[in-house]
Amino acid sequence: MTAMVEIRDVHKSFGAHEVLHGVDLTVPGGSVTVVLGPSGSGKSTLLRAINHLEKVDRGTITVDGELIGYRRVGDRLNELGERHILRQRARIGFVFQSFNLFPHLTALDNVAEAPVATGRRGRADARAYARTLLGRVGLADRADAYPRQLSGGQQQRVAIARALALDPALILFDEPTSALDPELVGEVLDVLRALAAAGTTMIVVTHEIGFAREVADTVVFLDAGRIVEQGPPEQVLDHPRHERTKAFLSKVLT
């Protein structure tokens, strides 16, 4: 299952500070898009807007043609009710920088929670599927551990399994390796590589340039709330056209 994401003229302010100044982006189904940019450039806000964790002030975001968070009535956008938004979010996986696993549930219950809660699967079925997913991220033997008993890399892999439990058409990754010790980054990126190979649509905010070069179909460079440059990795990473992209890459690559 793959999804296409279309972002049109999205604006977002926090108070007087405008974080996104009209972002346009098309993500084809089944592709991997890596979003790069200095901190404060609006990467996370953009990603969070795609599943309506952040409300946008102007513009539209659609996933597979379905408007996220709003219903269009004439030329007005009416915000959807909570239940409707939750149903839309269930089709979009989200992986947080700080994992946000539920500390009082075991790894298995963390993964099985959403399918049960949304009525997608029965309890026994959800747990069996959760076991399969934990196996896919290489943690079949840690199913009964609580998050605090796992290393950072293991926790993030559980969080990825949790996001996969609803068979999302699209998965959003918000700096999935930034909170990890350097030697644990590899195991998480391996899982991301496998997902990309399986054809899941992915949008990844990251500072891992090597990963972007290897896996991304498109690299997007965001600066001060605007998309400065986008294209295939060899173009954006190796032959950046914009001064700010060059400046950023020279800092990250040294």
Partner: peptide, 27 residues
Amino acid sequence: VDQGQLEAAAALGIPRPRQFRRIVLPQ
């Protein structure tokens, strides 16, 4: 209870009453 817990629950599409009962209250 950490704000991230509510965000994670919301991102998973867990209905509000269940978020409270299953995620927030036990913590």
